Structures are given as structure tokens and as C-alpha cells.
Amino acid sequence: MQIFVKTLTGKTITLEVEPSDTIENVKAKIQDKEGIPPDQQRLIFNGKQLEDGRTLSDYNIQKDSTLHLVLR
């Protein structure tokens, strides 16, 4: 499925993911596309910070959902 990740600069990254993917996996995909190390990434969905060990389906993230990427 496709999800979107919006950065603070207003750029939107499109990712191909599975609901069973962990947040860690998603961060690795963002690193592949953008070169941002996962330990600098914080992903936010519906105002909640997403934890590495959880999956997209844990957070009820579905296709065409938009996550927000904050760098630390």
C-alpha cells in the first residue's frame, strides 16, 4: 500500500509499505529515499509519536495515510 510522509519543509515522500511493516522498517525506507538516519527521525500520526517496535496496523495506518516526519 502507499503512504505519504510529510516533512517540515513541506516536501511529501511517497512510500510503498505493508500494514505489517514496523515503524523501524518505515524509517529505513525514508533513509533509503532521503538519506536521513533513522535515529534522527520521529514519525507522528494523528498527533501520536510512533514507536519503532510497533507496526503500521497497530496504529491503524491505512493506505494513503499521511505521517509527519520531525527531525531531532
Results as ranks from 00 to 15, higher is better:
M1A: 07
M1K: 14
M1R: 08
Q2W: 12
I3R: 00
F4K: 12
V5R: 00
K6G: 05
T7L: 14
T7G: 08
L8Y: 08
L8R: 10
L8E: 06
T9P: 05
T12F: 10
T14V: 12
L15E: 01
L15P: 00
E16W: 06
V17I: 10
V17K: 00
E18V: 09
E18D: 08
E18W: 08
S20H: 14
D21K: 06
D21T: 10
T22G: 02
E24F: 08
E24T: 11
V26M: 11
V26N: 00
K27S: 07
K27E: 02
A28I: 15
A28S: 12
K29I: 07
K29F: 05
I30P: 00
D32T: 08
K33Q: 10
G35D: 04
I36F: 06
P37V: 12
P37L: 03
P38R: 09
D39Y: 12
Q40D: 15
Q41M: 15
Q41G: 09
R42P: 01
R42N: 02
R42I: 14
L43E: 00
I44G: 02
I44S: 02
I44L: 03
F45R: 08
F45H: 03
N46E: 15
N46H: 10
N46T: 05
G47T: 13
G47W: 08
G47I: 07
K48I: 10
Q49S: 08
Q49M: 11
Q49K: 10
L50R: 00
E51A: 14
D52R: 13
G53T: 12
G53S: 09
G53W: 05
G53H: 06
G53A: 06
S57A: 07
S57M: 05
D58K: 07
D58R: 15
D58G: 03
Y59F: 15
Y59H: 14
Y59V: 15
I61N: 00
Q62H: 07
Q62W: 12
K63G: 09
D64N: 03
D64L: 14
D64E: 10
S65Y: 08
T66L: 07
L67Q: 01
L67D: 01
H68L: 02
H68E: 11
L71D: 13
